[in-house]
């Protein structure tokens, strides 16, 4: 008996070791993200801003994605403006001033645009509240004994009595 038990713990140990190896593998992957730190900050910021602007001459692409000459020039303009020390908001406002809200891939949080931000939050919150109410109701139902009509009970009794 003792022998078998020690065998079990050894095998359990193997299992646990194997299970620990899995996270170690994955974390190496996560660590590789740091390799990317060498980048030119400026370039990254240009593309980040370009990613928030819609390419005016494309079907449905951002200025960062598109390779149209207009998008290339817009990225150039973003880079120049950053070099001039303008803030992200100022750069975006520059293009918004020329093209209107249409150019902003992120709808501004005002006016009718607010709906697209508020509605999901409202619907999500309403759904969570509803779920909460239902859960309360269901938990009560689960903890209370089932109420049975006296009439039903009689019927069951009769049926049981008849079968006996």
């Amino acid at each position: 008996m003792i022998h078998a038990a020690s065998g079990t713990s050894r095998r359990l140990g193997q299992l646990r070791l194997a299970l620990v190896l899995l996270p170690v593998l994955l974390i190496t992957l996560a660590g590789s993200l740091s390799v990317a730190q060498e980048a030119v900050e400026l370039e990254a910021r240009v593309f980040e801003l370009a990613g928030q602007l819609r390419c005016p001459v494309c079907t449905s692409e951002s200025v960062a994605e598109s390779s149209s000459p207009t998008s290339l020039e817009m990225r150039e303009m973003i880079q120049e403006q950053i070099a001039l020390g303008r803030s992200d908001a100022e750069v975006l406002a520059y293009f918004q001033d020329r093209y209107g809200d249409w150019i902003l891939l992120e709808p501004p949080k005002r006016g009718l645009h607010l709906l697209v931000w508020i509605l999901p939050a409202v619907v999500g919150a309403a759904a969570l509240v509803t779920l909460f109410i239902y859960i309360r109701r269901w938990t009560k139902a689960g903890s209370q004994p089932v109420e049975v009509d006296p009439e039903d009970r009689d019927r069951v009794r009769r049926a049981l009595g008849e079968s006996q």
């Binding site: 005016p56 020039e73 150039e76 020329r98 093209y99």
Partner: peptide
């Protein structure tokens, strides 16, 4: 460079 067209908000 298309810069003026961008400055003028050309689609």
């Amino acid at each position: 460079s298309s810069r003026v067209s961008i400055d003028w908000g050309l689609f």
